[in-house]
Computed example of a mutant assay.
Amino acid sequence: MTASPIHVLLLHGLWMRGFAMAMLHRRLREEGFQVHQFEYMSVAAPPEQAIARLRKRIRALAPGPVHVVGHSLGGVLALLACRDDDLPEGRIVCLGSPLSGSGAARGLTHRWGGDMLLGRSKELLEHGLDRWDGRREVGVIAGRQPMGLGSLVGDVGIEHDGTVGVEETRLPGLTAHCVLETSHTGMLVSADVARQAALFLREGRFDA
């Protein structure tokens, strides 16, 4: 009897499309996961629309485990979609996600055109979440290679990945958190990030 496939859904971040996750997709597939892209409109549509679609997609991949890996805004949406207990089991990995709110987003709203750039995701990015109290284990990978424009438009703290501060990726209730030498967009092509993400999906921990 063959074992049920272990599914992984990948969520891109703000202003991106699914192809941005192509390298991570390939690496996780090489780790033995059955990987799927989840595309959504990050600016023009309200986050609630993406959350409802994501929940439906997770249910469609049941009955085996369905993990979710989200980059930046995608990680925030993953947590919101998986807060309730009526979904298949699985873990969540957030990559450079401003779970407690984004200083860069708050800074951008005070600049001309900032509201338009953030679109319907503005409030979610500005404020983030208070804590994680869902039943899924959540691991967060943050970067500390300061290459990006986010630090020029808002306060992201001393240690950051160029877009999101390390402290902005922390949230009460997380299972594990690690910091790697990578930038915000560099996470998507980093072999170290892919390896740590795969380890957490399998074992619920990062390699110290």
Rank of each mutant, 00 (worst) to 15 (best):
E39Y: 10
W132S: 03
I158D: 13
I6Y: 06
Q34H: 14
R131E: 05
R27F: 02
H110F: 09
T163I: 12
T2G: 13
G128P: 00
I6S: 02
R202E: 01
R170S: 10
A45F: 07
T109H: 02
A176R: 13
H184N: 04
G139T: 03
V179P: 00
L125K: 07
G101P: 03
A44H: 08
L149F: 15
D86I: 13
I158P: 10
V189H: 07
D207I: 12
D192C: 15
E137C: 06
G75T: 09
G157E: 07
L77V: 08
R26C: 02
F19S: 12
G74M: 12
V140C: 08
T2P: 11
I51S: 11
G162H: 08
S183C: 08
L79C: 11
V166F: 08
G113S: 07
I141P: 00
G32Y: 03
T169L: 14
E203S: 07
P172E: 02
L117N: 01
W15E: 10
H12G: 05
G103Q: 14
M21F: 06
W132M: 15
A3S: 12
V76H: 09
P63M: 09
C178E: 02
S151K: 12
L77T: 08
H67N: 08
L79T: 11
L174P: 00
P46H: 08
H25M: 02
G64E: 04
L10T: 03
I6D: 01
D192A: 13
D86K: 13
G70D: 01
H12C: 05
G90L: 07
Q49W: 15
K122L: 09
L108I: 13
G90E: 03
E31L: 06
Q196K: 09
G134W: 10
E181K: 13
M23T: 11
G13M: 12
A105G: 01
L80Y: 04
L152D: 10
L171K: 06
D155T: 12
A104I: 04
V68K: 04
G186C: 05
G64D: 05
A208I: 12
S4Y: 14
E203L: 14
S121C: 11
G186Q: 04
H184T: 05
L108E: 00
E89D: 10
R53P: 01
L77K: 05
G204T: 04
A142E: 00
D192K: 08
R91Q: 04
Q196L: 15
I141L: 10
A20N: 11
E31C: 11
V166R: 11
W112G: 13
D84V: 08
K56S: 09
A142I: 02
H36P: 01
